[in-house]
């Protein structure tokens, strides 16, 4: 098929309960791929397997030709996969700038010795710090977060916090970005903006996006391909139109009648 990002036969159980059941799918480079399904269908578990928080029981996850299943989350990040979380996992007592700087972590080289001896502006650590802060500033501009730049993110409203998390993932300069319900809890205005930003991220930064989303309007408008799952199994996969026409999906989203 293609070798950008493939999941083959992925299975994960929790003490006898099968959360993901022999799931297969493949994503093309540069595309937006959405995953839909009812609550408890195994979507977030899938994300946790991809980003290494859970170790799959069996199956393969391949990214750019290399197997990444079973690796630790930090190793997977270094392969160029970043993610956001359904229930925000921000560094709440750090500012927006500092949160985003964590996204630069894997691109920086400052070690413990450089850190301890960062006495002046021209020390190794300080030079690197300034260089990466400049990069982060661009992301802050892109997402319109200037006013939140030096504010601890715990003090920001929910919608902005979600953006900070998006920005933090972007700062990692990922090839694949996992978004876990990016529009949940946003106002319709915020959702509109988000829609355009996700498009921008795909088209201008060339980042492939794998997204879990409940808002069908957004899924239909934005996705190149859609995968519907239930009970950890694939219901249907295809273009948004194909998936929307599938009887099981109609039943799930529009009700029995």
């Amino acid at each position: 098929m293609n070798d950008f990002f493939t999941v083959t036969g992925l299975t994960r159980t929790f003490g006898g309960v099968v959360a993901i059941d022999a799931l297969d799918f493949a994503q093309k480079k540069g595309s937006i791929f959405s995953i839909i399904g009812p609550n408890g269908a195994g979507k977030t578990t899938l994300f946790n397997c991809i980003s290494g928080i859970y170790r799959p029981d069996s199956g393969e996850i391949c990214f750019q030709g290399r197997r990444i299943d079973g690796l630790k989350p930090d190793a997977i990040a270094r392969h160029g996969i970043a993610r956001t979380f359904q229930n925000l996992e921000l560094f709440f007592r750090m500012t927006t700038m500092e949160n985003l700087m964590l996204g630069r972590h894997i691109h920086m080289r400052t070690n413990i010795w450089h850190g301890l001896t960062m006495f002046h502006k021209n020390s190794t650590a300080a030079r690197e710090e300034a260089e990466h802060r400049e990069k982060v500033e661009h992301i802050i501009d892109l997402l319109d977060l200037q006013s939140a730049r030096d504010v601890p993110v715990g003090a920001l409203p929910y919608g902005r916090q979600k953006l900070v998390e998006l920005g933090r993932a972007l700062a990692l300069e990922p090839s694949l970005l996992l978004l876990d319900e990016p529009s949940a809890g946003m106002t319709s205005d915020e959702r509109q903006d988000l829609f355009f930003w996700i498009k921008d991220i795909q088209q201008e930064l060339g980042v492939s996006i794998l997204m879990i989303e409940h808002n069908m309007q957004m899924v239909m408008d934005i996705s190149d391909r859609v995968l519907a799952i239930d009970f950890g199994k694939k219901l249907v996969e295809g273009t948004p139109e194909e998936v929307a026409a599938h009887p099981e999906v109609i039943k799930a989203y529009l009700g029995e009648d």
């Binding site: 980003s51 290494g52 930090d74 270094r78 964590l102 990692l172």
Partner: peptide, 8 residues
């Protein structure tokens, strides 16, 4: 968890 997924 977030730190780990960012490569720490």
């Amino acid at each position: 968890i977030a730190a780990e997924t960012l490569g720490v």
